[in-house]
Design a binder for these strands. Sequence first.
DNA 1: GCATTTTATGTCTTATAAGCTATAAAATGT
DNA 2: ACATTTTATAGCTTATAAGACATAAAATGC
Lengths: 83, 83
Amino acid sequence: MMQKILSPEGLGAALRSERKKRKLSQTAVGKAVGIDQPTVSKVEKGNPGTELGTLFRLLAALELELVIQPRQKPAKDTKGDIW
Amino acid sequence: MMQKILSPEGLGAALRSERKKRKLSQTAVGKAVGIDQPTVSKVEKGNPGTELGTLFRLLAALELELVIQPRQKPAKDTKGDIW
DNA sequence: GCATTTTATGTCTTATAAGCTATAAAATGT
DNA sequence: ACATTTTATAGCTTATAAGACATAAAATGC
């Protein structure tokens, strides 16, 4: 999906989506990297207090990596080059 | 640079690099989003305890966004298609 | 070299994350 | 509808983040 993530909520949503794609439970991904299920739940719900260590362990469990890029430009008006 | 980030250290390094690219001090980026300089320092040094809230505020200060993607495949042997 | 800016480190306080465990609530499958 | 699995909440404990502030150490510019 390659969505732009701008907040803990967005990140949580992305992680949940990826986990489901892999058909894993919170317990399963958590266990793989030593995080308990309630913690996985909080991350996915967008808890801003989640620590980076926790985030990267989850990314590892899902075999994902992070990339940072310039913030998307406001409008990329669907083809036309009117102005 | 679009580098793959796999750890708090990598993330910290990327953030520092982007901040320098913009020629801002830790104090400056921090002040822009209400984070004190010592905290910015710790983030850039890869503190795994850094909270997501702090991370996203820094990303905002630098006008960056996050993307998650599948982990890079091991080797992408420079062109050839030998096997 | 020295003055100035920037980054790192340290202390004290307050707030809260995460582990652990339990359990409630919701979703899923048959 | 019911049993089973999954996710959300909650309490308790321990560890530590971040703010505020001070200051040391490093880097930058002249």
